[in-house]
């Protein structure tokens, strides 16, 4: 499956919906979207990965790159992910300590609201 990307803003949080495979071929598209969102002033991003079938280290690099960009504006980049096979990659690389990872968009929105 290819990569499908969509985004919307709710309660000050820009939710990026990702569907499909994030790998060395498709990751540049996600990178471009994250850069574009940050350039347009969206500094609080929530990437919903519930429909991601595959994620490799290239994808991790894009997410880390996005996090560095939003942090430069005192922003945040957090994730929604409950899929064990995807979470395993974050655990192997130690990135569970770097990203906030939530079980649902609602849970992330609630946490984001408390932080404001």
């Amino acid at each position: 499956m290819d990569l499908k990307l969509d985004h919307r803003t709710e309660d000050g949080l820009t939710i990026v919906e990702v569907e499909g495979e994030i790998d060395v071929y498709t990751a540049p598209r996600l990178r471009e979207l994250l850069i574009d969102l940050v350039n347009k002033g969206n500094f609080h991003l929530l990437v919903n990965m519930e429909k991601v079938d595959f994620l490799d280290s290239t994808g991790l690099g894009v997410l880390v790159g996005g996090l560095k960009r939003v942090r430069a504006h005192d922003g945040s980049l957090e994730l929604v992910c409950t899929q064990e096979r995807i979470l395993k990659i974050f655990r192997i690389t130690g990135l569970t300590k770097v990203f906030g990872i939530y079980a649902s968009v609602d849970e992330a929105k609630e946490a984001h609201g408390k932080d404001k």
Partner: peptide
Amino acid sequence: TMDLGVLSDSFLSGFGIAVIAGL
């Protein structure tokens, strides 16, 4: 140690092998 400051592109390029080693 995992810190956002050390996550340079060159460091990230080693993620692939780290993932393989973990899998």
